[in-house]
């Protein structure tokens, strides 16, 4: 039961129910509402059309790769930040947060300048003679993944750093005093303690990336359509709203399943700390 303070959240809850959940209900209704009563035909169509299924698989793959890239970059970054003196950590934190101040559109377009045929990366590589033909970085899955990882990274670093800061330094010192090398201390004490937070943040990232639209639209050149882009086509161009509703519902169900795992991990983390 909510306490006295909790009741104050009721207006907000009501707002959510009306504005968000009510419309979501409409979406669900549209996905099963055929011309002759209830039907699963749209789900069937979404499932059996090879192209749509492929977009679903592509979305999962790109999301997964972007998440892994973020973990590989973000974990060392957060670990390094944890070891900094407080003022310098605040400064680095500002740098990480700064990407939030720049519109996602601007950041995405900036990648065109960096990754294009005549972009920064290719020009440098060509000038140093490492390659002869420009690499295809833009308008491909590589470009989309890089762009997504860029947008997602702060969402990993922030919660991860918070969790890492909660890890008691005395545990690490105890391990050292018992003769563990720095490497052993990290892998056998620090890393396991940070693992639940890493899992939770990674899942959060994965869920976020399932809904990406702008980045694949701009950096994919129309060749790396993810679910968001497919839905845009179905809603705005071909006007197949029931099919779009069915695909959205399936995506929502999938995200909820991932969310259930997220909640479990979160609970595990809380009981541990």
């Amino acid at each position: 039961m909510p306490d006295a303070n909790g009741w104050r959240a009721l207006p907000l809850l009501a707002l959510f129910l009306i504005v968000f959940d009510y419309s979501l209900g409409g979406l669900l209704a549209k996905s099963v509402n055929g011309s002759a009563g209830l039907t699963l035909q749209y789900f069937k169509e979404a499932w059996t059309t090879k192209a749509y299924f492929r977009v679903f698989v592509d979305t999962l793959r790109v999301s997964l790769i972007a998440t892994v890239v973020c973990v590989l970059l973000g974990y060392p970054l957060a670990y390094w930040m944890r070891g900094l003196p407080e003022r310098r950590r605040a400064a680095v934190m500002t740098l990480v947060l700064m990407t939030f101040w720049v519109s996602i559109l601007v950041r995405t377009y900036a990648w065109i300048v960096v990754l294009g045929n005549a972009g920064l990366v290719n020009r440098t590589l060509l000038a140093t003679g490492l390659i002869r033909e420009p690499l295809t970085l833009l308008y491909s899955e590589v470009g989309v993944t890089i762009g997504m990882a860029n947008v997602l990274l702060p969402f990993l670093v922030l919660p991860l750093l918070t969790a890492m800061l909660r890890i008691d330094d005395r545990l690490l010192r105890a391990a050292a005093s018992l003769g563990a090398s720095r490497r052993q201390t990290f892998w056998r004490v620090f890393f396991p303690l940070s693992l639940p937070a890493l899992g939770v943040s990674a899942l959060l990232l994965f869920m976020l990336s399932l809904g990406f639209y702008i980045t694949p639209a701009i950096l994919g050149g129309g060749k790396v359509p993810l679910l968001g882009n497919l839905l845009d086509t179905l809603i705005n161009e071909t006007s197949e709203w029931s099919l779009a509703a069915a695909i959205s519902t399936a995506l929502l169900a999938f995200a909820l399943a991932v969310f259930a795992v997220f909640l479990r991990l979160n609970r595990m983390m809380e009981t541990k700390s």
Binding site: G116, A118, L138, Y139, G221, G222, K223
Partner: peptide
């Protein structure tokens, strides 16, 4: 051989200008 399938009319001109 198609690098980009454009959705807005400003894209192709820009891509030509950028030698993309």
């Amino acid at each position: 051989h198609v690098s980009v399938w454009w959705k807005t009319g400003t894209q192709p001109l820009q891509l030509l200008k950028d030698n993309e």
